[in-house]
Simulated assay, not measured.
Amino acid sequence: MDQENVSATLTVAAPAARVFAVLADPATHAAIDGTGWVQEPADRAPLTEVGQVFRMDMYHAKHPDGDYRVANKVAVLDPPRAIGWLTGTEGEDGRLELGGWIWRYDLTPLGPSETEVTLTYDWSAVPRFRREYIQFPPFGPEHLINSLRHLAELAAPTSADRTT
């Protein structure tokens, strides 16, 4: 495969600021995830700055340990237009080893209550040695659109929102 990224786009029935707030909350990431790998946030603070690190507990049947933890470093933060993070691991000394892939959400307001959201998974910076044991992308094409559908459900206004 020559292309080293995959993207999906969906129109979400919610304002961009609301969609962005859902994405900036690590506690929502397990519910957004279209693979079921993301389990629980180890850090629950909202994402507020580039360079911020947040950790997630994960599970993957093909991972050597099954259960594992990733460390994500915020690389893009432009509320309410874009948010993205690099994923890797954190050593016992606190040093991050990023894998070379990034998750990025781009939000385009289509009006006061609709947002076009594009989710991109880009692995173009993954080093050759890592590509020898991880196939990219490590999930099927349905993952991105499933994640966007989950995001749309989480960001949708509730009946309480509509009455205020």
Rank of each mutant, 00 (worst) to 15 (best):
T87S: 14
K73P: 05
R81C: 05
A17K: 07
D65H: 13
D67R: 15
A61K: 10
G140M: 11
L96C: 09
W101D: 13
T108G: 07
T35Y: 13
P109L: 06
R104E: 12
L86C: 11
L23K: 04
F139G: 15
V117W: 09
D78E: 11
D93I: 08
P141A: 15
G34P: 04
E142V: 01
P138C: 07
Y59R: 14
K73W: 07
G36F: 00
V50K: 06
L47V: 05
E49Y: 15
A31Y: 00
A31C: 01
R81N: 15
G111F: 03
A61R: 13
Y59P: 12
G94E: 00
L110C: 00
V117G: 05
Y68P: 10
A75V: 05
Q52Y: 07
T35H: 15
Y105A: 05
D33S: 01
W123R: 00
Y68V: 04
E90K: 12
F20Y: 10
D43H: 08
Q135C: 08
V19G: 02
P138Q: 11
E40T: 14
E40C: 01
Y68I: 09
L119M: 02
E97Q: 13
A75R: 11
A125L: 12
P41E: 07
Y121A: 03
W101C: 08
V70A: 11
L110N: 11
L98R: 06
V76D: 03
L98Y: 05
F136W: 14
P127H: 05
R131P: 01
D122E: 10
P26Y: 04
T118S: 12
P64L: 01
P80D: 07
E49F: 06
A71F: 10
I83P: 00
W101S: 14
I134Y: 01
V76L: 00
R69M: 14
Y105N: 05
P137E: 08
A30R: 09
L77A: 02
T115C: 11
F20S: 02
T108C: 02
M56I: 14
T48D: 08
A61L: 14
H143G: 05
K73Y: 10
I102T: 15
D93K: 08
D93L: 09
S124E: 15
W123A: 06
R18E: 07
H63C: 08
F139P: 13
G111M: 10
E90F: 04
E114V: 09
H29Y: 01
D122A: 12
P112R: 09
Q135Y: 06
M56C: 06
P80F: 04
G99E: 06
H29F: 01
F20T: 06
H60M: 15
E114Q: 15
G91H: 10
E97S: 15
S113V: 13
R18S: 04
A21Y: 02
P127I: 00
